[in-house]
Amino acid sequence: MRHYQCNSPEAAGRILAACLLTDGHLSLTELEALDRCGMEKRLLLNRHRLLSIVQTLYEDLTRSGYLSWSDVCHVDPTTLAWLAADVQDWRLRRDILELCSEAVMADCGHCDREAEFLRLLRDAWQLPARPVRQDALTGTSVS
């Protein structure tokens, strides 16, 4: 797998790319959500560069022998920890997690693989799960 400089836009983008591929497809809805959430300003990465990183990641993952599309989309915990190690800046980590979460929610679908990806990424960075807050109007828990 290619190496990117620590805390670089490419290192951040590769984690985001892995998240985008986790459910087996990359949708325009996800890309539009990332644009709305300020991906370019937060990661110094525009959509064109992100798509190039997605392609590069795909190429790197498929070099490891014959894999089905489902296997390629699933980044194992060891590989994800290795990718996560390329981002040390806590603000950049926060931005990546927020953008990954927005992308997961963008297509109004949620799969177990996406939830697992976000959990593994938080674990790799030793971050707590998103805190549960109380809704001010109803007193019910909102995550």
Rank of each mutant, 00 (worst) to 15 (best):
M1L: 10
M1E: 04
R2C: 03
H3L: 03
H3Q: 06
Q5S: 05
S8Y: 14
E10I: 05
A11M: 07
A11F: 03
A11C: 08
A11P: 01
A12N: 01
G13A: 08
L21I: 07
L21N: 11
T22I: 10
T22R: 07
T22S: 13
T22E: 01
H25Q: 13
L26D: 00
L26V: 11
S27N: 00
T29S: 14
E30T: 08
L31Y: 01
L34A: 03
C37F: 10
G38F: 09
G38H: 12
M39P: 09
K41H: 13
L44T: 03
L45E: 08
N46S: 10
H48R: 14
H48T: 13
H48E: 13
R49M: 01
L51N: 06
V54W: 09
Q55K: 11
Y58G: 13
L61P: 02
G65F: 11
G65L: 11
Y66C: 05
L67S: 06
L67F: 09
S68A: 05
W69Q: 14
W69C: 06
S70W: 10
D71Y: 01
D71P: 01
V72T: 11
T78A: 13
T78W: 15
V87F: 07
Q88D: 12
W90G: 09
R93E: 00
R94E: 15
R94M: 12
L97K: 03
E98I: 14
E98R: 13
S101V: 03
S101Q: 09
D107E: 15
H110D: 09
C111W: 09
D112L: 12
D112T: 14
D112G: 12
R113W: 09
E114I: 07
F117D: 05
R119L: 15
R122G: 02
D123V: 10
A124D: 04
P128W: 07
P128Q: 09
V132G: 02
R133V: 12
R133K: 11
R133P: 00
T138H: 05
S141C: 08
S141E: 10
